[in-house]
Computed example of a mutant assay.
Amino acid sequence: MTASCRVPTVADAEAIARLHVAGWREAYAGIVPSTILDNVDVADRIARWQDYLAGDGVTFLAEEEGAAAGFIRAGALSEPMVAGADGHIFALYVLRRHHRRGIGRRLLGLVAGEWLARGGRALSVGVLTENAPALAFYQGVGASFAQAETYRWEGHELPESIYVFRNLEELAGFA
């Protein structure tokens, strides 16, 4: 089964918000305190996604059989996390039941191509250091470790690894 990918509209905000929360719960179980994951306000996430989708970032939605399977959101930061990285991947989630189908690679390729088209040169991404599958994925598609940081989420400090994609032309080939 092949996922279709498209630029979502504000009408997709609820589907993406629900996928985002489900993605957090799948990826961060045992890493992020369950009190945080259990108490995510979906209505707040929907409102945020309505704002994101009305903004000027780069977002792609992957669907399989008409249902949201994954998404990616990227854009500019006011202060780059890594020297030379003029863009940042804010979120990339693919629901576990859709893993190993090339969806994450394809979403990365679409974002890389769009970032290049906008004149971009490199993209950074932050990954919770304890999220071993995500670290392996990013390393496997050519990201290079740049630095260690601390991500603060609801008063909890979580180790974060910052990676950078400097090979956007190659990455765009995944689209």
Rank of each mutant, 00 (worst) to 15 (best):
G75I: 13
G87I: 06
V141Y: 10
L53Q: 03
D86F: 12
A172C: 04
G84R: 14
E14N: 06
A68D: 13
Y52E: 09
G57A: 02
Y163H: 14
N39M: 05
V94C: 04
V7E: 09
A17K: 07
A17C: 10
H98R: 10
D56H: 10
N167K: 09
V10P: 01
V94R: 04
V111D: 02
L171T: 02
V10K: 05
D56G: 02
G104D: 03
E79P: 02
V40H: 03
F145Y: 15
E26R: 03
I16M: 08
A68F: 13
N39K: 13
Q147E: 14
R45P: 04
Y138R: 10
W115H: 13
V82L: 11
W49I: 07
A22E: 15
C5W: 00
A122C: 11
D51Q: 15
R106S: 01
L110E: 06
L128D: 08
I36W: 10
F145W: 15
I36L: 14
S78L: 09
E114I: 10
V125F: 05
G109I: 03
D12N: 14
T35I: 12
G30C: 11
R18E: 13
R45T: 06
I89W: 09
R25Q: 15
D44Y: 11
E154V: 12
A148Q: 12
A146R: 08
H20L: 12
T9S: 09
L128E: 11
E26I: 05
L95G: 08
F145A: 11
S144Q: 15
V7F: 00
P33F: 09
G104W: 04
L128M: 15
L53W: 11
Y151M: 13
F165M: 08
A69Y: 00
R106F: 01
G102Q: 09
A148K: 13
I36Y: 14
A54P: 09
E26D: 12
N131Y: 10
A91Q: 01
G75D: 12
E160N: 14
